[in-house]
Write a protein that binds this DNA or RNA. Sequence first.
DNA 1: GTTAGCATGTAACTAGTTACATGATTAT
DNA 2: ATAATCATGTAACTAGTTACATGCTAAC
Lengths: 187, 187
Amino acid sequence: MKKSNDTKYAILGLLTTDCRSGYAIKQMIDRSLNHFWKISYGQVYPMLKQLVTDELATVRDTTQAGGPDKKEYFITEKGEAALQEWLQTPIDKIPAERNAVLLKLFFSRHQYADTTIRQLEDYQEKLKERYSTYEVIEETIASHMRNKQDAPYWLFTLDYGKRRTKAAIDWCTDTIDQINSGRDNHG
Amino acid sequence: MKKSNDTKYAILGLLTTDCRSGYAIKQMIDRSLNHFWKISYGQVYPMLKQLVTDELATVRDTTQAGGPDKKEYFITEKGEAALQEWLQTPIDKIPAERNAVLLKLFFSRHQYADTTIRQLEDYQEKLKERYSTYEVIEETIASHMRNKQDAPYWLFTLDYGKRRTKAAIDWCTDTIDQINSGRDNHG
DNA sequence: GTTAGCATGTAACTAGTTACATGATTAT
DNA sequence: ATAATCATGTAACTAGTTACATGCTAAC
């Protein structure tokens, strides 16, 4: 069983949009795929090299007027075939989220209710911030919409993030309430 | 800035429940923390060793009548202090979920609507399975309820998982509908 | 002159997975 | 006998992060 390395296909897929350089790919992931994918330069550049080695992409050195030199990558036919094959392959298992907040909550009988509530409030605040970044991503996608074909799919992924984040925010409110009412009963 | 290694505290925390061996810890995580944490034996055993080295736990060899030998671990006072300190520390950032389904959806203009829908249906099915495992976890927690003090917190984490999974299931339904109605318009 | 943004890359590290190896006991 | 469950562990690997190193251009 070979591992299919989704990050490889994230990069390959982005070569089908306007992203042609390692820098542009990193920017794009940070700005528009941020809610379900992330990557570091330490992955981007070696992987682009690998794509060329595997003949899934070609590279061309480009000198820009008014900007530093860069490398432009282009997906090959073999690359497009590989991308489509990957798109058709169903995922084998649901992504496992590792959530340190829940881990702490799980052991919270070792803690005063106050401290637990503070943790949940802090988490909720971060979730709200995240929710508001979805608005930013929505704008980014809207302004990128020369690519009309991509737009609906990109907005679907955004909707997913919003709904799940909303569910988590609401859970925080309700859980804080429950801890508070439990505390009142015992105090 | 030192990384605080949450897995270490997951194990340390479980030593405050009835789990005393590496095997028991692994079972517990698979059965009751499964929806927000996972671990492999390749982490458990070396980490238990590390806890002893760091004096956060002690170990005792135990021979069982009717069972193989095992090692029992006990949290020390230093360990309990470390656990509490970790519990009080707020998380620095929201866990980033890497979701290959969304990644594929993001590039789905390269794919027939049928194939995209099949992916979403497959994902939804897996989500429903996962949702039903929450019922199992709920039972496990209920049967473990000698530890009455832990119960409410464990059920909170379960509620989180249920709500978020429900949000994802509903999103699948709505997204499939939208893709279908879009296809009708263009066909 | 200095900050911000564009641009490319590597080395060392940390975390986590997978496959392997061993062996006891209990139930079918 | 043989499968399931209990029990412990390591080696090799893969993925991903962080810190570092370099250098250009444009705007303030």
